[in-house]
Design a protein around this nucleic acid. Structure first.
Length: 497
RNA sequence: CGGGGCGUAGCGCAGUCUGGUAGCGCGUCUGGUUUGGGACCAGAAGGUCCCGGGUUCAAAUCCCGGCGCCCCGACCA
């Protein structure tokens, strides 16, 4: 087993470390198809927990799930001008419907049958706006049909040049919400509502602090009026866009002719929003919390929250500690703790410790003859710290410990982020900061895309967001840090994934 | 598409410069002893050395041509 590398700020081997964590925790693997990822059960378990939590939040806000097709007629993508620009360069296209045997064995045994060429090629969805709004046009006639609040869980394909496990894979799993509203204010409220849900999910479930705000034009979603995002800072001080929520205005409604009759009898285009988070969140979770021993999974998203490791010498001791272990696992299960008893007798306890640590299990319980005699178990937290706990108090103590670990991870991540943030930067400071250190740099911005491009050119940093009031510096900047003209908004710069 | 690294047992690698019986560690299997932080001993199985051609008595090794993967860029809601 390869040893994980030390995490140091902006270390050259951060990528290597990241891949190591994924491989050792058995979260995912490379597939035979370049750029496509196989998500293994350990990784998918995290995704299932993420799905459940997000789905509950969406539903509580009045959304319902639906499903739209994988294939989109090529012409659909062409209907919204900016949208074509944004996705044309990275889609997979289906052109034929069957194969033909060539009679030869091996590599050239089959080939697309020329006779089966499609009249209009189908694009594998890179996102579903076009096909969703084509359906909305059928479903929406009256103001009484609004708002229409839908979400779908699905896979999408974007043929990126360079891929990275979880962060940017050719195919990925996500949820995409699509809504239609009667007026701009309602659509804006929706886009903001979802941004808030994403933020809460990131902080409360992933223990990953984020800053929220609006994207500049150059980073806006293709076809949107405005794009809001949550941005997190990873341990190598690079930013990760963890979720986006778009106010699409009437752009798609006009392209797909989605109109409704108002209460007053007029005919208006609807206002749309779309929003999504993906399996990229798992990459963010890994890079936010893990260490040299492997994954650290925040308790609320840990498929296994507690690993119980029994310790014995003799058969009598074995029977005894396993008996206690089974009861502890059952008791914890009864109070909603996901616990597993590691009964393997082919692996020594020390080896089990390392294994559960690499997998990110937040809490380990050791039960040996000495513990049984003392009516206690030894608790060992993934983030450090061992302490005994009385057997008859575990159903209270363990959930409390999991909550503590969850909270500790969030505050540690927040402290790391703040330690890697500077405010009120000057041009010279920004250049030095991005070169030597990296992190979130707050400063004045004139709003000019030429300035944005120049900054990217010399520092590799981009505007992550124009932050919401809560995240802004106490003293609003008055001038653009780059050109010195009047600042229109404070911006957060960082090098990003 | 550019720059760098690599392709040898399930995994990680040495061997390539300087051609000469294909090796090591981990894992797997068998038996025994073990079990409070990655157990030990003994034995065993496991290979188109990425592919194709060439040079040679002899090629993992040298030459030519392919293919593939990883990292860095370009690209990227």
């Amino acid at each position: 087993m390869a040893q994980a590398q030390k995490i140091t700020p902006r270390a050259k081997d951060f990528s290597e470390w990241y891949n190591d964590v994924i491989m050792q925790a058995e979260l995912a693997d490379y597939s035979p198809v370049r750029g496509c990822m196989v998500i293994r059960p350990n990784g998918y378990g995290i995704w299932e927990l993420m799905q459940r939590a997000l789905d509950d939040m969406f539903k509580a806000a009045g959304h319902r799930n639906a499903y739209f097709p994988l294939f989109i007629p090529q012409s659909f993508l062409a209907k919204e001008a900016e949208h074509v620009e944004g996705f044309a360069k990275e889609v997979a296209i289906v052109t034929h419907t069957r194969l033909k045997a060539t009679g030869k064995a091996g590599a050239g045994a089959v080939t697309p049958d020329p006779a089966s060429a499609l009249e209009e090629p189908l694009v594998v969805r890179p996102t579903s706006e076009t096909i969703v709004y084509a359906m909305f046009a059928k479903w929406i006639q009256s103001y009484r049909d609004l708002p229409l609040l839908l979400n779908q869980w699905c896979n999408v394909v974007r043929w990126e040049l360079r891929t990275r496990l979880f962060l940017r894979t050719t195919e990925f799993l996500w949820q995409e919400g699509h809504t239609a509203h009667a007026d701009e204010a309602d659509a804006e409220r929706e886009a903001r509502l979802i941004l808030g849900i994403y933020r809460r999910f990131a902080e409360e479930w992933m223990a990953m602090p984020v800053i929220t705000g609006v994207k500049t034009d150059s980073e806006r979603f293709a076809g949107a009026l405005r794009t809001y995002a949550i941005e997190a800072l990873m341990q190598d001080r690079k930013a990760l866009q963890a979720g986006t929520s778009h106010n699409l205005g009437q752009n798609f409604a006009k392209a797909f002719d989605v109109k409704y009759q108002t209460a007053a009898g007029g005919l208006e285009h609807v206002w749309n929003t779309s929003w999504g988070v993906s399996t990229r969140l798992i990459g963010g979770l890994i890079m936010t919390h893990s260490d040299d021993n492997g994954l650290i999974c925040p308790p609320r998203l840990a498929p296994i929250q507690v690993a119980i490791v029994p310790i014995w010498k003799t058969d009598a001791e074995r029977a005894q500690v396993l008996g206690v272990g089974e009861r502890v696992a059952a008791d914890l299960g009864a109070v909603g703790v996901r616990a597993t008893l590691d009964t393997r007798d082919t692996v020594k306890p020390g080896a089990k410790y390392f294994e559960w640590e690499a997998r990110g299990v937040p809490l380990r319980l050791e039960i040996g003859p000495r513990d049984v005699a003392a009516q206690q178990v030894m608790t060992a937290r993934r983030i450090g710290g061992k302490a005994p706990a009385p057997l008859d108090e575990l159903t209270q103590v363990i959930p409390a410990m999991l909550d503590e670990i969850q909270a500790a991870l969030l505050s540690a991540a927040r402290e790391r982020r703040e330690a890697a943030s500077i405010r009120g930067v000057t041009k010279e400071q920004l250049i030095a900061f991005m070169k030597d250190q990296g992190g979130f740099a707050y400063g004045g911005f004139c709003g000019d895309k030429l300035c944005e491009a120049a900054i990217k050119e010399s520092t590799a940093a981009t505007v992550r967001v124009l932050p919401d009031p809560e995240f802004r510096s106490p003293q609003a900047p008055t001038t653009c840090l780059w050109c010195g003209k009047a600042s229109v908004a404070e911006a957060v710069w960082a090098q990003a994934y």
